[in-house]
Design a binder for these strands. Structure first.
Lengths: 249, 249
DNA sequence: TCTGATTATGCGTGTTTTAGCATGTTTTAA
DNA sequence: TTAAAACATGCTAAAACACGCATAATCAGA
């Protein structure tokens, strides 16, 4: 086996799996690990791969993670905000949760929309109230240090007394098998109460959160009226949800 | 599994959920918690994440209005904040209004103070909750676009149900003849309810608001336990108040 | 085809990195 | 105050590594 041939094989493996282990290549091609290591070293010097302890990984795989997490997925979130705005009509009563997507939405709402917003997030409330035609009502309660939203029994109580047209919730985990899920018990309780208080339910999720599950169940998929992601509704990534009884945006 | 691959996975989880727990990663990838901790430590040293007890959080997950905006008379307000802090004891229950002075106070509270804060201001709430030993409870209600505090009947109702050790209120007008006054009917109602809910009342006012009157009366001077300004208690400017039954700070 | 030079490969040796475990300490929350 | 969780630290075994060297493969020119 020629050297170039071998390195082409390694390159193919990396393009295929985003990584290779020296031991794997050694076993597959029946060559010594030393040779593989020498190959990888050489390829790394040529800038073709990134050498790491144990093997090598694709250059394109590793690179994007270091650079830009400050604005990670922000473009996607603004895109989502634009879609949500289409759901909002004058004189609607809306209930929202927290999260960065919701803040983006609050910023992007057109100034001429006349509506009432209930929210458990002080940050969202403060953004919303900058729009002069909105009435903003905070559902008060104990403020969670980690998630910056109001939680606890008082929130649940207040939610029991209201009925809104639309509830906007961010999803933490979302999958066909488990429905909408979350990792925090308190959050689940609040989200459930929010869903009970709403006639229609819209779930907001960036595509990467789809098909992931957390420990606690929030609601079934059939309770959800709208699923909003940054993807086009006919994107193959959404195919598991296309036949379900929810509108994809 | 390669180390870099693992760290990329962790990075991805953090970008998705703003945080990770060491135990979760350990379970998901079937590796020891030690390894996860070592990874997080390393990533924290590289500045990729913020390490916290139990896991790590996204570097960008710090709420947005830290921009040290030039607040009017900020030095005086910080001075006042320092004086108020002397009134605060462990296990106190405090009720606060809004205003820039209160925000300065919220920032300046020592981290080791263990207390419960009720507040009608979402901004104050968000500042307070950054101190880990504080329990912060928002009194929710309609958010006023101008003053950024919660107002309305719902606030009054909730205030009727609580009793706190100390109420911190900013004054809009303050004089010997008229007592504490304000210009907005709604604000007066809320302030009165706050005073009713408190055993002791501390009024915060920068000196230039003293000896001015607004149209509506909030309370008499004899209901006030503490008057806090940036001046020394024996300042001649405060002489009209020195013989009254309130403590000057 | 042969020969010498060059390069590539495998192996032995010793070193470094890694991951899990045991131990004792600190932090956290009840 | 106390018990559990999270942590730091040191240690160990195994894996991955670098290096030198011997041998094997490759190639150019006669």
């Amino acid at each position: 086996m020629l050297k170039d041939e071998r390195q082409a094989f390694i390159m193919r493996q990396i393009n295929l799996h985003n990584k290779v282990l020296s031991t794997d290549i050694s076993a597959m091609l029946n060559i010594s690990e030393d040779t593989v290591r020498r190959d990888l070293k050489e390829m790394a010097e040529d800038g073709k791969v990134l050498k790491v302890h144990g093997g090598a990984i694709s250059r394109s795989f590793h690179y994007p993670f270091n650079a830009d997490n400050a604005v990670y997925a922000q473009a996607a979130k603004q895109q989502i905000a634009q879609k949500i705005i289409k759901l909002l009509k004058n004189d609607m009563v809306v209930l929202t949760g927290g999260g960065t997507t919701m803040i983006e939405l609050a910023k992007s709402i057109p100034d001429n929309l006349r509506a009432t917003f209930f929210t458990i997030s002080p940050l969202v409330a403060l953004e919303l109230v900058e729009h002069r035609n909105l009435t903003v009502i905070s559902i008060g309660g104990q403020l969670s240090p980690s998630s910056h939203v109001h939680m606890g029994a008082s929130v649940i109580n207040q939610l029991a007394d209201i009925k809104v047209d639309l509830c906007l919730l961010g999803a933490n985990g979302f999958s066909v098998q488990d429905g909408m899920t979350d990792s925090d018990w308190e959050v689940v309780q609040v989200k459930r109460a929010m869903i009970r208080a709403a006639k229609k339910l819209a779930i907001i999720s960036i595509a990467e959160k789809l098909n992931s599950s957390q420990r606690m169940k929030v609601c079934d998929l059939n309770q959800i009226n709208y699923l909003i992601t940054e993807l086009a509704p006919d994107n193959h990534f959404l195919s598991p949800y296309q036949q379900l009884d929810m509108e994809l945006l």
